[in-house]
Design a protein around this nucleic acid. Sequence first.
DNA 1: CCACTTTGTGTAGAAAATACACGAAGTGGC
DNA 2: GCCACTTCGTGTATTTTCTACACAAAGTGG
Lengths: 228, 228
Amino acid sequence: MPTYKYPRPVVAVDCVVFGWNESGLHVLLVKREKDPFAGKWSLPGGFVKENEKTGETAERVLKTKGGLKNVFFEQLYTFSNTDRDPRGWIISVAHYALVGLTTEMQEQQKETAGSDWVHVHALPRLAFDHREIIDTAVVRLKNKVRYAPIGFELLPDKFTMRQLQQLYEDILDTTIDKRNFQKKLAGMKLLRATGQKQQGVAHKPAQLFCFDDKKYKELGKKGFHFEL
Amino acid sequence: MPTYKYPRPVVAVDCVVFGWNESGLHVLLVKREKDPFAGKWSLPGGFVKENEKTGETAERVLKTKGGLKNVFFEQLYTFSNTDRDPRGWIISVAHYALVGLTTEMQEQQKETAGSDWVHVHALPRLAFDHREIIDTAVVRLKNKVRYAPIGFELLPDKFTMRQLQQLYEDILDTTIDKRNFQKKLAGMKLLRATGQKQQGVAHKPAQLFCFDDKKYKELGKKGFHFEL
DNA sequence: CCACTTTGTGTAGAAAATACACGAAGTGGC
DNA sequence: GCCACTTCGTGTATTTTCTACACAAAGTGG
């Protein structure tokens, strides 16, 4: 744009990566190496490059800072307070991502020394306006999980009804009646029983289900609307 | 940010301004004077200035291009396709706004020659990716109007039940039973009867109501959740 | 084989959503 | 002045959805 002579902002992408396991909902944080805020925890992020759209920047950040590929993510909000970064005029197009947290992933991050999964209710002080970004993402997640089937992105491919219910209880911060919950989910016909059962638990093992993506898309065309 | 040596995008704000009256839901369009797309219809927009956050840019655009002050608006989505503007790398932080359309406003825009209120179902071909932006805004409006009391922003301060219902029917593209609708709204206790009646209509005049913002905020604190 | 934990399942009552019709109020035309 | 026309304002019965609640069966660990 040769005729545009005014100052331009730097544009960055920050990612709120949510990971869930049975001990709760977590966020991936990375420790800053450089100033400003050297040594402080922050969200994984990076600058948008030329010939890259912000979604591609987010993919790149997820891969390089979190080792994550092919995970669900979505644009969240664009933060543009002029004083949000002491280095100057930096606008951040925040995204959020959802992944199932495995114990391997948690240990891997610990080895990386400089990144960690932190429980959403135990966040440390964060660099920049990253706390505000996380709060915004939590609100979005709470709302969206009720009218879109994105909760499944936080679970392993095969999961028990109990895990699904616990997930919803964690996110929505409520308790749900087991029978009513199962009735509702059964009514939607979005879960497919795998026939497999939980292994290595000291009690009656639960069936494993998976989310039926094809079915969801079919039903979507017929005007079906997920709601919990 | 002195250490950042890479190319930077230009950042713009485009606004989808929705205006409703009894003939339907409209969008404010402006005719482009300059190339690219000279003579084509487009959304009102502008570049983000230094020391300005995108919300402030939106306010400025609404005022200068639409003559609108103190209207409801909200960030929508950030569009960053690298080929969205032939002039170069321009990212747009789209916003949407809601206003009640009066006949004066419509005539005023016609005089301005170069801007017009167009029915959402009769949009012309638009410059850039502005059609995609409008489509995104319509989806957002359809969703949000159901779980947040933003529909009132599209009505005059005092309105009849019928207008409110028609508004919802227009946006959600359904028909609603009059008695059930009124029962539901009455149950929420968010409407205050003004005691006034419609004037100059050739039939039994309807009561005029207004939205009780204070009440809504009070109820919000008590965990009330608007839903239609 | 006993103790422990978690699974899997049905029903009755309460609350909410839906479907539906007619007399009353006001204007405009004759 | 009165008739035609249009829209307002209101209640009830039926169906559907939501909620609350308990116990036998499956499997592990000691």
